[in-house]
Design a protein around this nucleic acid. Structure first.
Length: 490
RNA sequence: CGAGGUGUGGCUCAGCCCGGUUAGAGCACCUGCUUUGGGAGCAGGGGGUCGCAGGUUCAAAUCCUGCCACCUCGACCA
């Protein structure tokens, strides 16, 4: 294998897959489009998951688990919803294998054909709403605030590790409310949770807003999203929160009795983020040396490399670091001491840089003689010495600084690549070189489709602070109904 | 689904045209010694039914036929 990764500037998507393989985040599964998430990559996911789960609990949600298998009939209950997923469903048709007649291998036993075919969930609205019908009778049962952590399957033609795989891990919240206002508020609240985790934990700046009708979730009345800019200036939808209105309540006949003893359909939301966010972290912060992880997300925040010649040196280094390690541990810092023998220091430097560990500490004879430790920052590449006595305190500060710096860098990158287009000619030029374009849109699907057809750019979102006053549509020249963000997207 | 391409140790590939010792290289792996402050050196070693099936031939990784898988572009999807 080559020593480094393909530089971003040479081939961005090759760079992306190189980083994933070399940093040991994931590997390809045996079935096309499937992905093995390796321990280091899963560690990143676990940290994300913990950050989200904590906030879901704080906002009153509880976790539960619903089945992987869905009766085919359920999916067809909500017309928009079926249409949205029909083309990418894995279908279970048989329940048995048998020895192949030619004696080699196994074949599907035709006798075992199922009465009703079963769908592997592409999302769980339908199974969950079938349950909610049983659980919701009265306004006293509302709101119902449930989340599940699960895998889902969407049979994709073109897949990319983390960004789009046939099976992926995610979280899906499904809530039921007595009023439209309350449900809409819930959808906004959870979008805000997503924004907070993306920005404060993953250090990914995001825009918040709603989707246009064509980009809306199948079955939703309104789809809200957080949208981020990747290192190649393309947009990535990082999370969505849907106000579903009464669509699923109607389809699954979920009614409750209100305080006035009247029967009413409940109002719903659903919201989700997935392992796609791991891809977002790679593409937001990574560089030509590999991954760069924000400290709050990093499975290892500080890696310590003893520079030693013998076992005695090894023992000496450990004794030298004892107090510092204890202090770091009690401050909750995730430290890893890499004392693997027979691997050169230089090799380890590159390996941990590839894996994006925010801080590296080197401790050798020179440092011990001077009562210091030698540090290297992954985000800036800076190298400097710290006094051993105050190293732990300083490291805690540095981690905060790195976290903020990564966010700042990403935000500056997005701002430097967000443009306003004066006219459609300029729009087309700008979109060629990548980035976000903020401009007026007349609100018609025709205009949106025409722009997509001609430039491959789509409306990523209608920002919440959209102000169309006095603006015109970039394409039709008619008065703008919204001010929107256009970009090419993943 | 249309067009093109590729299948040889874990990975990247050479060998194939023009059939002929025991099928090679680099990287990775294992052992030993020397090393360790930016991807170490030397020596030794393990690992391949050459995608599958059939055919031609004294002889097939190499030639022929069929099948399978994967890749790229298009289509499709977001």
């Amino acid at each position: 294998m080559a020593k480094g990764v393909t530089p971003k500037s040479v081939d961005y998507s090759k760079w992306y897959t190189d980083v994933i393989q070399r940093a040991e985040l994931a590997d390809y599964g045996p079935v096309k489009g499937t992905m093995v998430i390796r321990p280091y990559g899963y560690g990143i996911w676990e940290n994300m998951k913990a950050a989200f789960d904590l906030r879901f609990k704080q906002t009153g949600h509880v976790n539960a688990y619903f089945p992987l298998f869905i009766p085919k009939s359920f999916l067809s209950r909500e017309a928009q919803h079926v249409e949205g997923f029909a083309k990418e469903c894995a279908v279970v048709t048989h329940s048995r294998l048998m020895a192949s007649p030619d004696g080699r291998g196994v074949v599907v036993d035709p006798e075992s054909k199922l009465e009703e075919e079963i769908i592997v969930r592409p999302t769980s609205e339908t199974v969950i709403w079938a349950q909610y019908k049983k659980w919701i009778k009265s306004y006293r049962d509302l709101p119902l605030l449930i989340n599940q952590w699960a895998n889902v399957v969407r049979w994709e033609m073109r897949t990319r590790l983390f960004l789009r795989t046939s099976e992926f891990l995610w979280q899906e919240g499904h809530t039921a409310h007595a009023t439209e206002a309350e449900a809409r508020e819930e959808a906004r609240r959870m979008l805000e949770v997503y924004r907070e985790v993306a920005e404060d934990v993953l250090a990914i700046p995001v825009l918040t807003g709603s989707k246009s009708e064509s980009e809306r979730f199948a079955g939703a009345v309104d789809t809200l999203c957080i949208e981020a800019m990747m290192g190649d200036k393309k947009a990535l939808q990082a999370g969505t929160s849907h106000y579903l209105g009464q669509n699923f309540a109607r389809a699954f006949d979920v009614k409750f009795q209100n305080e006035k003893n009247e029967e009413e359909l409940v109002y719903a939301t659903s919201w989700g983020v997935s392992t796609r966010l791991v891809g977002a972290v790679i593409m937001t912060h990574g560089d030509d040396k590999g991954l760069r992880l924000p400290p709050r997300l990093a499975p290892i925040q500080v890696v310590i490399l003893p520079i030693i010649r013998s076992d005695e040196d090894d023992a000496q280094v450990k004794a030298y670091l004892k107090t510092t390690l204890e202090k770091l541990e009690s401050a909750g810092v995730r430290v890893h001491l890499d004392d693997r023998k027979k691997i050169s220091a230089g090799f380890k430097f590159n390996e941990w840089e590839m894996k994006g560990v925010p801080l590296r500490m080197e401790v050798g004879p020179r440092d011990m003689a001077n009562q210091k430790v030698f540090m290297a920052r992954r985000d800036t590449g800076e190298k400097f010495a710290l006094e051993i006595d105050s190293a732990a305190e300083k490291i805690v500060e540095l981690l905060t600084e790195i976290q903020e710096n990564l966010y700042r860098q990403a935000r500056q990158f997005r701002e430097a690549n967000t443009f306003r287009a004066k006219d459609y000619g300029e729009f087309k030029e700008l979109i060629e070189s990548g980035g976000f374009i903020k401009c007026g849109w007349d609100g018609t699907p025709e205009t949106e489709a025409a722009i997509k057809e001609e430039t491959k750019a789509t409306i990523r979102l209608i920002p919440f602070d959209s102000d169309p006053a006095g603006k015109v549509c970039i394409y039709s020249g008619r008065p703008a109904k919204y001010e929107v963000i256009f970009a090419r997207a993943y």
